[in-house]
Design a protein around this nucleic acid. Structure first.
Lengths: 169, 169
DNA sequence: GCCCAAATCACCCGAAAGTATGGGGGCATT
DNA sequence: AATGCCCCCATACTTTCGGGTGATTTGGGC
């Protein structure tokens, strides 16, 4: 591609590397602009980094004339080893809940939310009105600093407040 | 990848060839422009902005290109989720997905849903419209036999399709 | 008795989510 | 050429969420 002078292959390669890098960075910038308000959440940085890396790889690849490769140089980048501890228990749990300021009722609701129940169903389960459930969820979200139930579940699991579903295997 | 047997290597190759070609042309054009009329000492913001736009478009286009077909590209950012501790991996995963009839795109959406993203955000990440995301989620739910995203996440985790959030402790 | 936090409920409203249906394009298989 | 997936997008509609505000009740603690 791009019948760049055969003068030096390394030169062309370099150009492509730079090109890919620039592309990645710009794309990242675009994303940043687009999701600026989201920046606090999640590991957005990883995402950007990966995109940049990916485009770099693509650039190199293109420069290299795609020779089979496809070595999925993508899965490598991010790999952190997590200490797989699961759910807190007993005193620890209570402590965690207290730190967060979660009341028992809110925690109940949280559990049911994680169970995939709708507010209406939760209301039925707890013998309270839908409005009450809404209030609880609202307070819950505020305390967990999230704005969606999926996020709440995620965060709660990350904090060890909720058991994570395990494959039965 | 995943559920897409039809993707021949030729398609991907073609996309990359085009990509490389576009890259080359742009590079060349830039060089020409730079040493022709364009200035080294003037409003570089302009110049830069233009370049940024071009690069971004190309990047998006390219990503768009190979994403539809095989999902190798976009799947990466998604896959930056915590390493699979209690998740199926590799062949097992693909088998499970195939058994469920989940397409690669649907699986991507599932992952993002599990990440706590809204449909709108997912649309932004995948560079598709909100409606498309809705379609995917809808099909996804049907295949998982659930009717809410929280349920989908739960079930997927139970099936080992998704990594479970780990306490950071 | 007073105060407070928790729990309950209500109403409103806008934003998401979810459902249903249809259409168009690309690509691989037959 | 026909067929079948998959992906993408749209419109229309209903339901659910989530945020905001305010109110009442109840059990404890000071």
């Amino acid at each position: 591609m791009l019948n760049t002078p055969r003068t030096s292959a390394s030169r062309a390669r370099w150009a492509f590397v730079l090109y890919g890098l620039a592309l990645g960075l710009l794309l990242a910038a675009l994303q940043v602009a687009r999701y600026r308000w989201l920046l606090l959440h999640q590991a957005q940085e990883w995402y950007f980094g990966l995109i940049a890396l990916l485009f770099t790889v693509v650039g190199i690849w293109a420069g290299h004339r795609w020779r089979s490769g496809r070595n999925s140089a993508v899965q490598t980048p991010v790999a952190l080893a997590p200490p797989p501890a699961d759910t807190l228990s007993g005193a620890e749990l209570e402590q965690a809940l207290q730190d967060l300021g979660l009341t028992s009722r809110e925690y109940e609701v949280l559990q049911l939310i994680a169970g995939g129940l709708s507010n209406q169903e939760i209301a039925g389960r707890l013998f309270v009105s839908l409005n009450t459930v809404k209030t609880h969820t609202s307070n819950l979200f505020a305390k967990l600093d999230v704005q969606r139930r999926t996020q709440a579940v995620q965060k709660a699991q990350a904090l060890g407040l909720l058991p994570t579903a395990h494959p039965k295997v």
